[in-house]
């Protein structure tokens, strides 16, 4: 595993991306545009789930319409993120913010694409509203923790 990571991080295409003047800015830009889009869809959807905003749209309709944008955005973020990771695996694996970020990300994805999606396809009247508020709050907390942890990788 270690030798595979090392081999990839020294592959010619990887060195080119990592050390060229535009490779990293381009990857980081894709990462940030994806983050903006992803967290905005998550924000709108969770505010609707909690029953605070966007009440004109049924939750299930909103979830269905935002799904392609959320999936597109998360693809951008994960794709650019994996390439950045592969460029310097030793640095990331030794970084506590990175390990925290991956843990929070896994939980956020599970909560958002399992629990929130599940709640959005069942009748809201069948459960207490505080469940919706709790799930929405937890999901938003996790997603923004992922973002802050990501920023911390550069500084810690």
């Amino acid at each position: 595993m270690t030798s595979l990571l090392l081999w990839i991080s020294n592959a010619r295409w990887m060195v080119y991306i990592r050390d060229s003047s535009f490779g990293m800015p381009a990857l980081q830009s894709v990462h940030l545009v994806g983050l903006t889009m992803l967290l905005a869809t998550v924000l709108v959807l969770n505010l609707r789930l909690a029953g605070f905003r966007m009440m004109e749209w049924p939750l299930s309709s909103l979830e269905r319409q935002l799904r392609p944008w959320a999936l597109g955005a998360i693809t951008m973020v994960i794709f650019s993120g994996i390439i950045m990771f592969l460029g310097n695996p030793a640095k990331y694996l030794a970084s506590y913010p990175f390990l925290f970020k991956m843990t929070a990300l896994t939980l956020a994805i599970l909560l958002q694409f399992r629990v929130v999606r599940g709640l959005s396809t069942t009748d809201a009247g069948s459960r207490p509203r505080r469940t919706d508020i709790l799930v929405a709050g937890l999901s938003l907390t996790l997603w923004f923790a992922v973002g802050w942890a990501g920023r911390a990788i550069a500084f810690v």
Binding site: L32, L35, T36, M37, L38, L39, A40, V42, L43, V44, F144, G147, W148, R151
Partner: peptide, 10 residues
Amino acid sequence: IMALPLSVGL
């Protein structure tokens, strides 16, 4: 950066 989704994202 974390205000990006709240401003540009929305």
